[in-house]
């Protein structure tokens, strides 16, 4: 809607605004024009609400999935007839038998070439989470303050995690491996569900919930199985075990801390806090805390630690700062 409006009826305009306002970036002058349009007439606001609800709603998402599945079935009907029960089911089989069988016999249904290439860059703000269903049937869920870019090519699938924390459920395609690249670390996905928490530019935590992943960091490599968690730092890799039967904490808005540095807890809080929280004191940052914190409600965490540990909290408009109370 940069030039003359291409659409004239309010219904068309509402639809066009949904398209424009859902773009990854909206320029300020466009957003200002949107606010003028929507405020101009109650009918505009009502139509925009309906159109957004239509666009965001589960019924349309479900219909879109079903539509794509039926298109794919048509394109691959000869394979379906041969007894392969669909792309995802086939890839699960491949995951379990990767080590013992030649992967070739178990190739999942191949998509048509134009569906193989795909790229996207996605960011979330504080407190947002974003579910990203990918064309190969994989799923990524971004936690707040996270940033990824995705590139799918014929022979490999790449995700670069620049910031934040992501849950992955990867559909295995042995001939098209799935890689996650972090600063100084590469994770090769052999199996399916795992979580990566990029703690800082030089440290990341990879946790495997299903299947296997391989972590390569500075020449060292380690294959992780279910229930294993690796923390990469410049010093190397450290392996721990965790309970893989429940989802990662952030997916429920909780963070389970067991003797972790305060700065780690605050990093989790910052994924949700609209006002950034900072620690103004290095010894305080290193102080360890324990407990179960609802990080999706930053204020509850702050008042909790304020009471439990000797911490003074200064709540400013643009920043919340923590200091030792002594």
């Amino acid at each position: 809607m940069t030039g003359k409006p291409a659409f004239t009826t309010p219904v068309e305009q509402a639809a066009e605004w949904v398209v424009i306002m859902r773009a990854p970036t909206v320029e300020p002058h466009i957003e200002r024009r949107f606010e003028m349009w929507i405020g101009a007439d109650p009918e505009h606001a009502a139509l925009y609400a309906d159109m957004c609800a239509l666009y965001d709603g589960e019924p349309l998402a479900e219909a879109a999935r079903l539509q794509r599945i039926s298109e794919r079935k048509l394109a691959n009907s000869w394979r379906i007839a041969a007894g392969v029960g669909g792309a995802i089911a086939a890839s699960w089989v491949a995951v379990w038998s990767l080590s013992s069988l030649g992967a070739d016999q178990l190739m999942p249904v191949k998509d048509t070439p134009q569906e193989n290439d795909y790229s996207a860059s996605l960011n979330t703000g504080a407190g947002e989470t974003l579910e990203i269903p990918l064309p190969d049937g994989s799923l990524m869920i971004l936690s707040g303050q996270s940033s990824v870019s995705i590139t799918y090519a014929q022979d490999r699938r790449d995700v670069v995690l620049a910031r934040g924390e992501v849950w992955f459920e990867v559909a295995s395609e042995p001939e098209r491996p799935f890689y996650v690249t972090l600063p100084e670390t590469e994770v090769r996905v052999l199996g399916t569900a795992f979580n990566i928490d990029l703690l800082s530019d030089y440290s990341a935590e990879v946790s495997v919930y299903r299947g296997q992943v391989q972590v390569d960091n500075g020449g060292r490599s380690h294959r992780l199985s279910v229930g294993e968690q690796i923390t990469t730092t410049t010093g190397g890799l450290s392996l721990t075990r965790f309970d893989a039967t429940s989802l990662p904490d952030w997916r429920s808005g909780w963070y389970e801390a067991e003797d972790v540095p305060l700065e780690r807890l605050i990093a989790e809080v910052n994924r949700f806090s609209r006002v950034p929280v900072q620690i103004d004191d290095a010894t305080l940052a290193a102080k360890t805390v324990s407990g179960r914190f609802k990080v999706s409600d930053p204020e509850s965490v702050l008042s909790g630690i304020e009471a439990l540990y000797d911490i003074k909290i200064k709540r400013g408009k643009t920043v919340i700062s923590l200091t030792n109370s002594q």
């Binding site: 773009a23 998402a61 479900e62 219909a63 879109a64 795909y118 790229s119 860059s121 269903p133 064309p135």
Partner: peptide, 30 residues
């Protein structure tokens, strides 16, 4: 509602439908 949406999707011109599904389902930018 899903059935109604599916019907409308299947009746669209193929290019319109493909573009829409790429945006809404596959999350590709315009």
């Amino acid at each position: 509602e899903t059935r109604a949406m599916l019907k409308a999707l299947s009746q669209m011109p193929p290019l319109r439908r493909d573009v829409f599904l790429r945006r809404r389902l596959e999350g590709q930018s315009c």
